[in-house]
């Protein structure tokens, strides 16, 4: 086992050496892989930030409970208190009939007309704010449940723009996945082609190794390590590019959010996702290399 590990370590170091011997070609390949991987990763970061932004504007998802006219102040307060303990509910605001009338009088411009009425026609309202990040479907379920509460005449939920935003984000997410698949294929081709050229350059060596009894696994090993290293380093470059891009945008985005009175700030790639990006690069590099070498060995006459 120790000898096996040592052999692999030797091949890994040798593959590093091979890449270092052609610094310009290696740098170009790594940069291309890095940019290719940075595109979907950057878009994922952008969508995540948009998602955070949309959940920050959760007022659009608030549910207004119009209480029955005969509900008195104490019963309304009691119901509000019950709802505050309910799961999925972040806050409940009670607007009494009097407060509603005062607000309506202030903003509607019908003050004198209201004076002509014999009584207050407006119901008391409980404004329920669901927990952040609640999906449109869950909001609808919550609205239905709240509508069944005793004393509730009508439960209204304005979901139109939340639904539209979620639909757009879902579309964008799918588009990013599609792009990610295409760009992953591009990485496979980039690494595959680089390794194919390396295989052609070492054609004689491969033939000799085959004739002295080297197994296909032994022949493939240095190329697989080279492909894996290229993908891994390309992934690191992609992570760096995403972080640099975010760093560049953070200031202007914070300024813009500040103008709207929002504390919103950009969030970068989580550490685990960054590692996943680097690992994906490594896997794609390994796979591209495996395909290129496998194809080449199958084509040889004396395999």
């Amino acid at each position: 086992m120790k000898a096996w590990l040592l052999r692999h370590a030797q091949v890994l170091v040798g593959s590093f050496g091979q890449l270092a011997r052609t610094p310009i070609a290696t740098a170009l390949t790594l940069t291309v892989i890095g940019i290719t991987l940075a595109l979907p990763a950057g878009l994922v970061v952008a969508i995540n930030n948009l998602d955070r932004l949309s959940t920050g504007f959760d007022r659009g998802g608030q549910i207004s409970l119009f209480l029955k006219q005969d509900t008195n102040d104490a019963a309304a307060q009691k119901l509000a208190q019950q709802l505050r303990t309910r799961s999925g509910v972040a806050a409940v605001e009670y607007i009494s009939r009097e407060a509603a009338l005062a607000e309506f009088r202030k903003h509607s411009g019908f003050g004198s007309a209201l004076d002509a009425l014999s009584g207050n026609p407006l119901p008391a309202v409980l404004v329920v704010r669901p927990e952040a990040g609640t999906s449109p479907a869950a909001l609808e379920t919550l609205r239905t449940a709240l509508a069944r509460q005793p004393g509730v005449e009508l439960a209204e939920l304005d979901l139109a723009w939340v639904k539209r935003l979620h639909a757009l984000l879902e579309l964008a997410e799918r588009a990013v996945w599609l792009l990610a698949v295409l760009l992953a294929a591009a990485v496979l081709l980039i690494v595959g082609n680089t390794i194919r050229l390396a295989v052609l350059n070492r054609q004689t060596e491969i033939e000799v190794i085959q004739l002295v009894g080297g197994t296909p696994a032994f022949i493939r090993r240095p190329f697989l390590y080279a492909g894996w290293l290229q993908g891994l380093l390309g992934g690191l470059i992609a992570w760096l590019l995403v972080e640099l891009g975010l760093l560049w945008l953070t200031g202007p985005v914070s300024d813009l959010a500040g103008l709207y009175g929002s504390p919103f700030g950009l969030e970068g790639l989580p550490f685990a996702s960054g590692l996943a990006l680097v690992a994906s690069g490594g896997i794609l590099g390994w796979l591209g290399s495996r395909l290129a070498v496998g194809w080449h060995l199958r084509r040889q006459s004396f395999r």
């Binding site: 000898a3 052999r7 004689t204 033939e207 000799v208 190794i209 032994f218």
Partner: peptide
């Protein structure tokens, strides 16, 4: 002779042993 020009005499001769996974 099919010797590998970028490897030393030692490395060329050792190649079948390395390929066979012989103890270092």
């Amino acid at each position: 002779n099919k010797l590998l020009p970028d490897r030393t005499v030692y490395d060329n001769v050792a190649l079948p042993l390395i390929a066979a996974g012989m103890d270092d």
